[in-house]
Computed example of a mutant assay.
Amino acid sequence: PQAYVALDEIPLNANGKTDRKRLPSPEGDEQEGSAGSIAPRTATEERIADIWTELLGVRVGVEDSFFHSGGNSILAIRLISRIQEEFDIDFKVRTVFEGPTVARLAVATENAIRAEIAALSPAELTSSQELAKEFTA
């Protein structure tokens, strides 16, 4: 269960069965719904959310959990593979387990990109900057 609600007694109908209509709504559903409504705020979050939608078949908010949205370990491997392909970075599968939200994966992705740029030698960096100027000109 995603949420528990403590009750003094379970409401019963005339037949002595649980009256589901009289059960209170779990507070956890409201919190998850509000988290799910947070739209992607950056290009990285938008692209990762698009990948999730393609893999899981559901649109997610940036704070939704990959695993609560229908993801599993096999889909996590596919997610990482797609992120690596999309952003041309190396990523470990455990990244999804450590931060299973769009927001946290976007931060990890951006950090990986920064680390790869920082690891470039001055000659590689100059060459990359010249190549970027050619494409923007």
Rank of each mutant, 00 (worst) to 15 (best):
E46V: 01
G33F: 04
G57A: 11
P100F: 05
N72L: 03
I48H: 00
F91R: 09
P26N: 07
D88W: 01
I51V: 08
S81H: 09
S37N: 06
S81A: 15
T44S: 12
T95I: 09
I89Y: 12
T44K: 01
T109F: 02
S69I: 00
S73A: 12
P26C: 11
A35G: 01
E45T: 10
W52M: 00
D88R: 15
G28Q: 13
P100D: 10
R78H: 13
S69L: 00
D50F: 02
W52E: 00
D50V: 01
S81Q: 11
G57V: 00
V102Q: 06
R78N: 14
T53F: 03
I51A: 05
F87S: 06
V102A: 06
E46C: 04
V62I: 15
T44N: 05
G70F: 10
V58H: 02
A39G: 07
S65P: 07
T95M: 13
F67M: 11
I89S: 09
E32V: 07
L56Y: 03
G33C: 04
A49P: 05
V62Y: 01
W52D: 02
T101E: 05
V93H: 05
L105I: 01
E63T: 01
L75H: 01
I80V: 15
S34E: 13
S37I: 01
R59V: 11
F67Y: 14
L55G: 03
E27C: 10
S34A: 13
T95A: 15
A103Q: 11
D90Q: 15
S25E: 14
F87K: 07
R41L: 15
E54R: 00
E98N: 15
S69C: 02
G57P: 12
P26S: 08
E86M: 02
S37W: 00
G71R: 03
S65L: 05
A43L: 08
Q84P: 04
T42S: 15
